[in-house]
Nucleic acid binder design. Structure first.
Lengths: 207, 207
DNA sequence: ACGATATGAATGAATG
DNA sequence: CATTCATTCATATCGT
């Protein structure tokens, strides 16, 4: 559950209470505090409609629509989608890819931290914070993902992260890095930190 | 092989006691409670190796490594570094806030009540983030507080410029207008969102 | 048992 | 798009 919910179980007008209640003259949290309804809708757009990077126009519409549930601006919607997507990917990066040795196991399938997977299983196996995925009903929404309007949506990215890009992850990123040559300052005590050593101790579990 | 075995070697508090007492095998308390060994290593990485913001890859390795001392996930490592750094910075802020001389060093972060955060306020109605103006050249990286390997606290970032560049709308994906052929709303689940997607059936009850 | 504090977790808002 | 920072929420831990 999101903090917001716990914060205000009644789930109505979260921010108003928070702000007005205490200090009036405090500029305090300029920060947008989404209401539960807003969150619900945003997640629905994200998960059930595959919306990832809404266009400016879409953002306008969304924020306009969400405004009936509480104060909100376009930038809030914009950031929400950006953050949500970024964190979903980050979650994967911490678990699935990046380590060549690990990537192998996911070559032919999607990793179980995939959004789609999570959506229906609501699991978070050793990964990053699973933003509480809205309990999705049993139905698969894949159909709708593909048929979404302008087709510019980034639904296709769902599985991308689990695929491997060897040259990118292995040493591409460190091409001009000195790690290969010099001894990294962290490497001595913590060889597992060093990229190079990953080829040696490839197995994370048995390190 | 069994990573978990050493969970609580020294019988130190940790989470066992808490759990066992009430429910048997309660799936631990949701919240990661680092073992002393894990803490020790994390701190060593932090203080003795100057690691502050481990990359995704490093996080994977670290967590894999620490797993032999107890249950741990990538996100735990991630958050640990985030929090540790943030709180160190925060503490420093409080400590030095009064000392004028010191303030020179940490220019950003003090007096954050300023309006530098309100750069969006005079943007157009929709309120999209206009990409900020790049930084004023900043400043010095005053003597690092520590002699840590990687150069320490890169002293915050450069000034966040408060100036705004209204006509600029280069926020990443928003840079270009996706002026799709304007069809028009056909009231789908989110008519306000899309102009033409009619074939989406959303399971959102409330809209 | 309670209140304070330390710290894990989450997320809005940026930045480059 | 990856990363970082600030702030806030939630809970574990500890002293009284």
């Amino acid at each position: 559950m999101e903090p917001q919910n716990l914060q205000n179980p009644s789930g109505v007008n979260d921010q108003e209470a928070a702000k007005n209640g205490s200090f009036l003259c405090r500029q305090s949290s300029t920060r947008w505090t989404p209401t539960t309804d807003q969150i619900r809708i945003l997640k629905d757009l994200y998960y059930n409609n595959g919306l990832r990077s809404p266009s400016a126009e879409q953002i306008q519409r969304i924020s306009a629509r969400l405004r009936q549930y509480g104060k909100i601006e376009g930038k809030n919607v914009f950031y929400w989608f950006q953050n949500h997507k970024a964190r979903e990917r980050q979650k994967k990066r911490f678990t699935c890819d990046n380590i060549p040795a690990m990537q192998m196991q996911y070559r032919n399938g999607f990793c179980k931290n995939d959004e789609i997977y999570n959506k229906f299983h609501n699991v978070n196996s050793g990964g990053f914070p699973s933003s509480s995925v809205p309990s999705a009903p049993g139905l698969i929404n894949v159909g709708s993902l593909g048929s979404f309007g302008n087709g510019s949506f980034a639904v296709e990215k769902s599985f991308r992260d689990c695929s491997i890009n060897p040259n990118q992850n292995t040493c591409g990123s460190m091409g001009q890095n000195f790690s290969w040559i010099e001894v990294d300052h962290c490497a001595a005590a913590y060889p597992f930190l060093d990229k190079k050593s990953c080829y040696i101790n490839a197995d994370l579990q048995t390190l």
